[in-house]
Design a protein around this nucleic acid. Structure first.
Lengths: 301, 301
DNA sequence: AAGCATTACGGCGTACGTAATGATT
DNA sequence: AATCATTACGTACGCCGTAATGCTT
């Protein structure tokens, strides 16, 4: 199966050129090498492929038959090489990006929007899911994740942005419940839990002035795995919710939700783009990462 | 163009088996070798072809594209190998035989007749021509020739039969002309010349009893390059004609022509089958030679 | 523990180039 | 004489096997 593929390519070249020396020039080897390849091939096949009369080459019947196949071999090899080059260098083929639905809608899509329209050879697949997904199984090129995240040894992370966590609630909720002036006050409040974080009902808060840390445990009666749901719950006044500022910016701007205890801060998250390999990435992946980085750099200014 | 064809075959095998070790078993090499081939291929292409997670292999997009081509490569190679084997081992394809028209009609066709009908995958081409032909240019597999014949260094001869030359004439001619009792008497006779021999009008005769050689020069008014024409001329009583006994046997048997000076003999010819190479001949060629030899062995008994 | 892939290392073989030879125009 | 193919020979690189290592089930 592995036998003499090289010889076949040489043979095809020889037939194309009608001479050993012409072939040798094309292949960048000597006529000697060509001659040896052909001889070896003929010995291997147990048949004479071409009659050689110094000035003229002439295929035998077996040679003619074999040439068809040899041509197919080099054509296929050529095509494979071209295809790979295309997928490596051009913004073509498919690009699969995994995020949470919220990040996707709020940030990744906006970040990539213009880039995507500029490269319509690119078939982009957004896998928006809250479950952990296997990047290899799902053929994910880029996964957008929050730290701390499980990062395989074979993966590499690209920090995109520092993301603030904020504690928010609707103005109505704050009016109707006990006033919140220190972290301690939180323990009497209802925290809408988001299953995606490890300790849904524990808040670590740091005072911006003193740097003093406080851990508060809240009640978490209502839980969800979906940020949209959590937002809706918060807006309806069902409680406090802890959220990535990116996900809630719109509601803060409109006043639908307001920050609670702004003088205390929750631990930051880092938004990462995770890829499988650092080296030898197709251009579309590295370009996409660049676009994302640029977007989030401008965003945080 | 010659790069990594081996690697492509290995890659195709790996993808087919879904594992390095499975591929290694098929290819009869170690997993180490497989791993190195794939790595070399990936480095060469500048792209990751498959993600490996110990238990599971998974193609990248580029890998999937490249696999299509790699499969084509091995398929084409396989097919070429099969085709060559077929043309080498089976009695199929074409077989080109060059003879003179006379030999063809009188002997080669009868000799091969049953063999040909037994192998109908064989497309036989008879090149019946009196001109010298280039075996390579005309793709002749077997040429039937008389000695002494121009034999290239690359050709090899296979003696088929000793062929007697006989001097014949029609009974009517002999009656109407001077009686022929010794070679000397021939000088007054008309010899129909056949251009195919070197000295058409010179006869070298050896007495069967004494072994004495005589050279006689005859008149040659009528010449032809065609044995059929010469035979017809002889039958019409236009003169003596010197011929290969094979070509004239029928007329001798029927009495249309009779031998002149049977106690003297002309130099023998040897009927040869000439092929281009002795080694690595397709089966159909060697088989055909065997059939011919057998035929002429039985014939001379 | 077993099966699998990767890596380093070293040996062997193959593919190549050089140079000389032979063949053909 | 010039161009081309073949061959012998020496060399160097490539390919592969061994063995050790790491990873996964």
């Amino acid at each position: 199966m592995l036998d003499n593929l090289r010889g076949m390519a040489v043979f095809a070249s020889v037939v194309n050129h009608g001479s050993f020396s012409g072939s040798a020039r094309e292949l960048g080897i000597t006529t000697s090498a060509v001659s040896q390849q052909i001889r070896s091939l003929e010995n291997d096949l147990g048949v004479v492929l071409l009659h050689r009369s110094t000035r003229k080459l002439s295929l035998t019947e077996a040679g003619a038959g074999f040439y068809e196949a040899a041509k197919d071999v080099v054509d296929a090899a050529e095509q494979g090489r071209m295809r790979v080059n295309q997928l490596r260098d051009e913004l073509a083929g498919s690009l699969r990006i995994a995020t949470t639905p919220e990040l996707s809608v709020n940030h990744i899509l906006p970040a990539l929007s213009t880039w995507l329209t500029a490269h319509d050879d690119l078939a982009v697949h957004f896998l928006a899911d809250n479950h952990y997904i296997d990047m290899i199984d799902e053929r994910v090129d880029i996964a957008i994740r929050m730290s701390p995240s499980i990062v395989d040894s074979k993966m590499s992370s690209h920090a995109l942005a520092e993301v603030k966590q904020v504690l928010v609630a609707s103005p109505e909720y704050l009016q109707q419940h006990d006033k919140i002036e220190t972290p301690k006050d939180l323990s009497k409040h209802e925290l809408i839990g988001i299953e995606l974080v490890k300790d849904p009902n524990v808040l670590e808060m740091v005072c911006r002035e003193s740097g003093k840390k406080t851990k508060v445990k809240c009640n978490t009666r209502i839980q969800t795995n979906n940020v949209f749901v959590a937002t809706a719950l918060a807006k309806s006044g069902h409680g406090l919710v802890r959220m990535i500022s990116l996900d809630i910016q719109k509601e803060l701007d409109s006043g639908e939700l307001v920050e609670v205890l702004p003088e205390y801060q929750l631990p930051d998250y880092v938004l990462y783009a995770v890829t499988l390999d650092r080296e030898q990435q197709p251009a579309k992946i590295t370009r996409c990462l660049e676009v994302l980085k640029e977007y989030f750099e401008n965003y945080s200014k």
